[in-house]
């Protein structure tokens, strides 16, 4: 299959997988919609699983993972459904609420809007990786102290976003915090308390 685009050397495995997929598809004369076709042609289950997955290396909360995932698996669903890291929440699945906020290489992003495979080789930090053992991160402690939540469902996303907000230098005033935290919806409406928590951390001078 010489018309496949080239891949970086580290993706040899992925390449082999694609090649395998392509030849498999050729073998059963199915082009070009692999899965719909696999579905309707009642391809053997194991074959279907094999062609659907690609290898993926991630470092999550300091731990290295070697995984095989479907390209269509989002980072959020990978965390929640396959790795049991359910601290990261699904609130809308469309990038409209911020509950799924995690850090990828230190930057806050919506984990629902990217495929896990796109983050191959990257470092992910979720709410589970924020505390230092039993010692809460200063932002976590400030959220408890200022009651920056009610139901708690948006809270992991709020905290991950808040930590990034301070690190980015976007927490210099109440107005700036309000704007740069607007990507995290709290339907319980604990907004004022969230701002208080962020301001305390920002002004406290602790390392975030």
């Amino acid at each position: 299959m010489n018309n496949e685009p080239d891949l970086p050397p580290s993706h040899d495995e992925a390449r082999r997988n694609f090649l395998k997929q392509s030849s498999l598809l050729t073998a059963v004369a199915l082009v070009p919609a692999p899965v719909v076709q696999a579905a309707t042609a009642e391809l053997d289950e194991r074959v279907a699983a094999a062609i659907e997955k690609v290898p993926l290396k991630l470092e999550i909360n300091g731990k290295k993972y070697k995984l095989d995932v479907e390209p269509r698996t989002t980072l959020l669903d990978l965390l929640r459904e396959q790795l049991n890291l359910t601290g990261t929440k699904k609130g809308c699945d469309y990038g409209q609420c911020g509950a799924c906020t995690v850090h990828v290489d230190g930057q806050r992003v919506n984990s629902c809007l990217s495929f896990a495979v796109m983050h191959d080789g990257k470092k992910i930090t979720t709410i589970e990786g924020l505390a230092d053992g039993d010692k809460l991160h200063p932002m976590q402690a400030a959220f408890v102290k200022h009651d920056g939540f009610q139901c708690g469902y948006c809270t992991p996303g709020q905290i991950m976003s808040a930590v990034a907000c301070v690190r980015e230098g976007h927490a210099d005033s109440e107005a700036e915090i309000r704007e740069y935290m607007s990507g995290n919806i709290c339907r319980c409406g604990a907004y004022t308390n969230i701002v208080a928590a962020i301001q305390e951390v920002k002004n406290g001078g602790q390392k975030v």
């Binding site: 018309n3 496949e4 685009p5 080239d6 891949l7 970086p8 993706h11 992925a14 694609f18 997929q21 919609a33 692999p34 899965v35 719909v36 696999a38 659907e52 690609v54 479907e70 390209p71 269509r72 495929f115 495979v117 796109m118 191959d120």
Partner: peptide
């Protein structure tokens, strides 16, 4: 969502050709 092929070319020209 349907299953799809995922490729990550390292060169611009390869990406353009792929699409």
């Amino acid at each position: 969502m349907n299953q799809f092929q995922y490729v990550r070319p390292s060169k611009q020209q390869a990406a353009i050709e792929a699409v």
